[in-house]
Design a protein around this nucleic acid. Structure first.
Lengths: 362, 362
DNA sequence: TTGAAAGCGCTAACAG
DNA sequence: CTGTTAGCGCTTTCAA
């Protein structure tokens, strides 16, 4: 029920540029096809065809309809259209957060790719909470989207069930360490952790500290940590110190944690950060302290965020292929949706590449 | 048309945890109320009532229905529901970008506030392009949302018309320098620029450089700049140098621009940046060069982003009240939607507060 | 407390 | 090329 009484736009009686008054002063009722039909003297069906560019319509009729639609300011009702056609051009995109640069980049990959497919991404945010993921998923599925792109391979049983029952393409993104419901596109975080460990070992570092987020539900960070420690263990190295934070400015936290850790364990010669932002904080701290980087202490982060370009020194990091993940996932959805075959198998694993920067000696 | 042929979930034949097989192996058709009705032996209408908690239903029937719905994994079809009830619980939120920390914060303010109103924010991104804003707005309005929250007071004529005709609450956010269609919540960017100028003048700086984005369509940045220069002019000061960038890492750009500008105009004693990120880049550069901040050169940015907390020195900035803007805007939409009166007038101007940090001498 | 009938605004399918 | 008819899956309204 809309509150017609309260709804009084102060701009309601503004003149349009050509000096005419707005068309309606009667309580606004959204226009329907019928209104356009009547205004143009063309049947509803034909109006519908014109407005959707579907089927053959004579140029003259088309013109009449378009004029009328424009003049009235008709906005089609997609709800009715979707119900009638059983077709919704929405793609649900479910991600844990918008706060760090990582997901926005995935999103831009998705939306650019979807741009000329007629599909529209719609974003839901879970805050890394499985219950919230469930809620968001349920909510989005109730709009009967044409596909789902969802971060991670770990979902509650209910979420899994919903995704399977939905009968639409599902692409799980960011991670490939696990079994996808349908398709997945991402990187292996275990492998990313391993690769970084190998690099560090090869560079001769021995006393390694780790800093990350206090998030048991961030499965990808966990997998990176696992891959990292296992590879170190194989080389007979154990993490010498570790610390986890939550909340606050990541840059500041990186700074603080680094200070604390170095005080506690002064002989550390390498610091591995679970994300670039805290890594950057650590880097700034070490430089201020006049500590030789990477001579005395080496550093590395994770993600390859653009921010790093502006730092005094280039932090070593690993690119998580965020944009590409978005693009690829969207391509799969688009293909499936068009009835095309998907060239890739169910798992598309991108290769996280190391950027050694200036904080990892070679 | 869904591609049933291609759609073969590899996980389709997975067992559930209790060992049973998934319920359907027939080609998946989304379930309807009727399915639940048949499975529970209760009329569709009553099922509908139970699922919406509407109207009185006996505890026994309610239980039967809920069991059936859960067992089948029924997900209601909001499209049909919305069409029938003429009510959509969506709020369109239209913003220029997700890339910088500013809009995500607004969003979190909005979604938190909307959380317990039954309204769902849906985000559209315009990339600061009026044509895109028009497209996004049209697209979103065609879903007949219950309200619109849209960044900025400047819209194309077509957008203005759509917003007025929509017959739903509209809150324009971020800016208050102009005339809102319905309601607006934000800060006065002219005032923000003026305030900063006053502060700088009071501190005795005289040779002032400005750096910003090359975005004629970022009206808020433009207004800040105007407020800033006008106030300086009144004190007989003219901007001594200015530069605008586009694209790339803001931090890196801030660094580059600062270096270039200081080379070109070495006697500058203050640098005003249109956003914190380039300001941070400039700050890092100056510190590296061993330049006395704020003794020799003072600095200020804009936005009050969290990132600044981790910098070696606290950049002077002005808080843009991003979260509060989101919260307030959502409150207005929610109130209007519930038919409640809105306590505030059409314009809610928040007060941008200065954080002098360590880069602006007092 | 429950059910039956009548649409919501649009499009698929067919007939002219 | 254009129009008619019959729903899409749900909720509103009214009657039982």
């Amino acid at each position: 029920m809309r509150n017609w009484l309260l709804w009084q736009s102060p701009a309601n009686n503004k003149k349009t540029t050509d000096g005419t008054l707005p068309l309606t002063n009667t309580p606004k009722r959204p226009l329907t096809l019928r209104d356009v039909s009547e205004a143009s003297g063309v049947s509803e069906m034909t109006v519908s065809r014109v407005l959707r560019n579907k089927g053959d319509v004579s140029a003259a009729t088309r013109q009449k309809v378009q004029d009328a639609a424009k003049r009235l300011g008709y906005v089609p009702n997609k709800i009715a259209g979707a119900l009638a056609s059983q077709r919704v051009n929405l793609v649900a995109v479910i991600i844990p957060s918008l706060g760090n640069m990582v997901f926005p980049e995935v999103l831009s990959g998705i939306s650019e790719t979807l741009e000329d497919t007629g599909l529209q991404p719609v974003v839901g945010v879970t805050d890394y909470l499985p219950e919230k993921e469930e809620k968001v998923l349920f909510e989005m599925l109730s709009w009967r989207p044409s596909g789902v792109i969802i971060a991670g391979l770990e979902h509650s049983e209910a979420s899994q069930a919903m995704l399977q029952q939905a009968g639409i393409p599902v692409v799980e993104i960011m991670d490939t360490d696990g079994e996808p419901i349908d398709h997945c596109v991402g990187i292996s975080h275990r492998r990313a952790g391993r690769k970084m460990a190998e690099e560090i070992i090869a560079a001769g570092y021995k006393r390694i500290g780790f800093m990350g987020t206090k998030m048991p539900l961030d499965h990808r960070a966990r997998k990176r940590f696992e891959g990292f420690t296992r590879t170190l263990a194989k080389a007979g190295i154990e993490i010498a110190d570790q610390e986890f934070y939550s909340g606050g400015s990541a840059l500041a936290k990186g700074r603080e944690m680094t200070a604390k850790m170095l005080e506690r364990t002064p002989d550390l010669d390498f610091l591995y950060y679970s994300n670039d932002m805290i890594g950057a904080g650590g880097l700034l701290y070490l430089l201020e302290q006049g500590i030789d980087v990477p001579g005395k202490v080496g550093l590395a982060g994770f993600n390859g965020v653009e921010l790093l370009d502006g730092l005094p020194r280039q932090l070593a990091t690993m690119d998580a292929c965020r944009r590409d993940i978005g693009v690829k996932a969207a391509q799969i959805i688009a293909a499936l949706n068009a009835g095309d075959a998907v060239p890739d198998g169910p798992i598309v694993a991108l290769d996280p590449t190391l950027a050694a920067g200036d904080t990892l000696r070679r």
